[in-house]
């Protein structure tokens, strides 16, 4: 069921897996019939939809400031229009591109190293037989999520910094002056490590929820068929995790141009702007600090457009690979 399904109204036909023929009879419905059939469902979406329109789409009109020299006391209607000047200023600035590059470096590292971490931890937890121990570990590993960045950065500085325990240990084994917090080349890794430490445990929760959704009989059936634990992992567990994994991966791609603002702001001086400036800190220093809202909005708009393109693209790709993605085609 990859691509040949051109007619909207035909969707129902593909609903259950094609291998199982007990699907309701294929028939075309008129728009009116579908409205009648879906009216309860549609009504259920109304409150949420209203919420999004009022609290997200109405404020989005505020993006006009991307084309203005916005002054809060004049308001959106009276602030002078400057056309594309905010975009031109931003995109003509080499520092903007350097910040974009740094952002991508960090988000890609996080996709590779941080994204799979909660899955791995969830699988490890899931494979633990003792449910007491499992619960204990589960209820400890999520705790770092609740420690603020100021404190995490301080802790990381005291462990990995020039006077830190790790640095002393490295010194003892012959790696001298390994101040990991002041090293521009290591910076993306440092930031990723901190994120892994803070959020891996918290991230497992959603995968655990997916794991309990897997039918236990599938395991039993596979075991009876002679599949060992690795094969069961491959054929039962991973496919069970696939929908939510793909979903989260796609959503992550959408925010590929954003990395933890506070976390990086607290540490960029250690490595200098060349290595430590990311898009969000760039916007902060080139817009918000001075109260210039135009350039910030311009960057936000572009980030959103790129995120949209990535999400839609990744979703298409997921469909080609036979996955559901965020929504169906």
């Amino acid at each position: 069921m990859t691509d040949v399904r051109p007619i909207e109204a035909d969707r129902t036909a593909g609903q259950p897996a094609p291998a199982e023929p007990q699907a309701p009879p294929v028939r075309r419905r008129t728009v009116w019939q579908r409205l009648r059939r879906d009216r309860t469902m549609l009504l259920l979406t109304v409150p949420g939809l209203l919420f999004f329109l009022v609290f997200h789409y109405v404020p989005l009109l505020g993006y006009v400031v991307a084309f203005q020299s916005y002054q809060p006391f004049l308001g959106f209607t009276q602030s002078p229009w400057v056309g594309l000047a905010n975009f031109a200023t931003t995109f003509g600035d080499p520092a903007f591109w350097s910040a974009t590059l740094n952002t991508l470096k960090i988000t890609l590292l996080q996709l590779v190293f941080f994204f799979p971490a909660p899955i791995a931890l969830a699988l490890l937890l899931n494979s633990m037989l003792s449910s007491k121990l499992r619960r204990f570990v589960q209820s400890v590993v999520y705790l770092p999520h609740f420690i603020g960045w100021v404190i995490i950065v301080s802790i990381s500085q005291e462990l990995l910094g020039g006077t830190g325990v790790v640095t002393h240990l490295l010194d003892a084994v012959g790696v001298h002056n390994a101040d990991l917090t002041n090293n521009p080349a290591f910076f993306p890794f440092l930031v990723t490590l901190q994120v892994i430490w803070k959020n891996t445990g918290w991230g497992t929760i959603i995968y655990l929820a997916a794991l309990v959704g897997i039918d236990q009989q599938l395991y039993e059936a596979a075991a009876v068929d002679g599949a060992n634990r690795w094969r069961r992992l491959w054929h039962v567990t991973l496919p069970g995790l696939m929908p939510v994994t793909i979903l989260l991966l796609i959503l992550n791609l959408g925010s590929i141009l954003s990395v933890g603002f506070e976390q990086i702001l607290l540490q960029r001086d250690n490595v200098g702007a060349d290595a430590g400036e990311v898009l969000d800190t760039y916007v902060y220093f080139h817009g918000i600090v001075d109260g210039q809202w135009g350039p910030s909005a311009a960057v936000g708009l572009v980030k959103g457009l790129i995120g949209t393109a990535l999400i839609l693209g990744a979703n298409k790709l997921a469909h080609v690979l036979g996955q559901e993605g965020v929504y169906r085609r």
Binding site: V31, L35, D38, M41, L49, G254, G300, Y327
Partner: peptide, 20 residues
């Protein structure tokens, strides 16, 4: 569902654009 995808996209886009 009729209109399902547009409504979902309406919600989805709010993750990508924040108004400030």
């Amino acid at each position: 569902m009729i209109g399902g995808r547009p409504i979902l996209l309406v919600a989805l886009f709010t993750m990508l654009f924040s108004a400030g």
